[in-house]
């Protein structure tokens, strides 16, 4: 199973471009999408989810053109949008039955499947309450449950961990990993650690363009040997920031521990080389392509 995207462009108006000549091939497994706000992640996901038409370009899923034949992917897709809502007067069962109808699935096993999904997202105890009374995290969990309702072969998660507590985030990551053998999973997040933990491949986007797509070690390879840590006087921090790409700072009394990227570390400061991470590479790539 593969999703082939070629020369995709989404032009909202003369000034605003969502995607620009974007090409990517997505195979089974988890693809993590990283990019700053406005990079085009949600636009890409909406186009794949068939709720937005590209201005130009093609999308083929297993050879089927899903721009002109959206129902082909709709039957096998699970989609969790970033800002989705619910019908507040329905309870979890009624809502999921409704979503099942939307997805065109039913049968004797539906109720049991809903039970198991609710149990899986830890909502069984609240399943008969109106969803309008749920907390943000609970709504997010019912969003995850609905995405899995129809045996999806393509799963699209746009910022799925927003609102989840740390424990639920861990459970979600585990769930996604378990699903990856049989599905194409596209996952966008601002939380790099979420992507780092589970994504087989990572695509970094900016300004509607694809900066790089590769397995994590290759992405991290961009900054291998370039990441350092040093201790600075607080007063020197400002000048240091002007010269280097700062990844992180940690205040420690009068001094600040600084993690930064450079080809040539400051000789006058005692900089220590450290192992590069996906976050380092992401910041390096998006900063260098400003």
């Amino acid at each position: 199973m593969s999703l082939v995207i070629k020369n995709l462009t989404k032009q909202y108006n003369k000034e605003k471009t969502g995607l620009s000549d974007y090409s990517i091939t997505i195979e089974k497994g988890i693809l993590g999408l990283l990019g700053p706000n406005g990079a085009g992640k949600s636009t890409l996901m909406k186009i794949i989810a068939t709720i937005s038409k590209p201005t130009r370009g093609t999308l083929f899923l297993d050879g089927q053109d899903i721009v002109n034949n959206p129902d082909y992917i709709r039957r096998i897709m699970g989609y969790l949008p970033q800002d989705f809502g619910v019908y507040p007067n329905l309870n979890a069962y009624e809502f999921l039955e409704y979503i099942a109808a939307l997805k065109g699935v039913g049968g004797a096993g539906l109720r049991k499947r809903i039970d198991m999904l609710l149990e899986g997202v830890n909502l069984t105890a609240d399943a008969k309450r109106p969803i309008g009374s749920y907390s943000g995290g609970m709504k997010q969990r019912i969003g995850i449950a609905q995405a899995l309702l129809n045996d999806p072969k393509v799963l699209i998660f746009d910022e799925p961990t927003v609102g989840l507590d740390p424990e639920e985030r861990v459970r979600f990551r585990q769930l996604i990993s378990d699903l990856a053998d049989d599905c194409i999973i596209i996952l966008s997040s601002h939380i790099v650690s979420d992507i780092e933990t589970i994504a087989d491949e990572v695509a970094i986007m900016k300004n509607g363009m694809l900066l790089d797509k590769a397995i994590q070690p290759e992405i991290i390879g961009h900054v291998d040997g370039k990441v350092f840590e040093t201790m600075l006087e607080n007063s020197d921090l400002h000048a240091f920031k002007a010269k280097h790409l700062i990844i992180n700072t940690t205040r420690q009394k009068e001094k600040t521990k600084v993690r930064y990227i450079t080809k040539t570390p400051e000789s006058e400061t005692a900089s220590t080389p450290v192992s590069a991470t996906l976050e380092d590479a992401y910041l390096f790539l998006t900063h260098n392509n400003a």
Partner: peptide, 18 residues
């Protein structure tokens, strides 16, 4: 403890486009 979800273990559904 909440159960883990395995898509393969979930009951199969049939198409229903009504």
């Amino acid at each position: 403890e909440p159960a883990t979800i395995s898509l393969k273990a979930l009951p199969k559904l049939v198409p229903d486009y009504g």
